[in-house]
Design a binder for these strands. Structure first.
Length: 151
DNA sequence: GCCAACGTTGGC
DNA sequence: GCCAACGTTGGC
């Protein structure tokens, strides 16, 4: 089982929205970055996910989710009305995928990015590294365990 | 709103 | 293939 971190803006789709979704599951739409997409294609059902709130006050880790279904074409890429529409994507060979996430739980407290940056134990976590903007990336078992220990 | 960092596009 | 221009991300 692999572990991941996924970012979302709570004003657009936060962990509360995932919890309120039917069956507490939702397709993770809107990823339009190849590196992030390629990580999503590696995800398996049952993989753990840290749900991160970006562009928030404060930004930080909000809770846990689990991969409920593996990568499939993201339907928003073919929807001209969608903010995520990509006219260059060929329906015969879709460019963008999504995965389905299921809500697990909120953290007991939101763990702010500013705090995460203070731990030497998390120096390898891409989230805290300068210049890393990837919205989807892997998390090591060590970092996962450490984050749960400071919750 | 600012700005640094990174990704993508497109001319050549 | 190079690289400048532009767009996006995301913290602050």
């Amino acid at each position: 089982m692999a572990l991941w971190l996924m970012k979302s803006e709570p004003d657009v789709f936060g962990i509360d929205d995932l919890k309120k979704s039917p069956n507490q599951t939702a397709g993770w739409d809107g990823v339009r970055n190849y590196q992030a997409r390629n990580f999503m294609r590696q995800m398996k059902a049952g993989d753990g996910v840290l749900f991160y709130h970006s562009n928030a006050t404060p930004s930080g880790l909000a809770g846990l989710a689990v991969i409920a279904a593996e990568a499939q074409p993201d339907p928003t890429q073919f929807d001209p009305a969608s903010h995520y529409h990509d006219p260059k994507s060929d329906p015969a060979k879709p460019r963008w995928d999504w995965v389905t996430l299921q809500y697990v739980r909120h953290f007991k407290r939101l763990i702010p990015l500013t705090e995460l940056k203070t731990y030497p134990e998390l120096a390898d976590l891409p989230l805290v590294q300068k210049g890393t903007r990837l919205s989807v990336h892997p998390v090591s078992q060590h970092d996962w365990d450490f984050i749960l220990s400071i919750e």
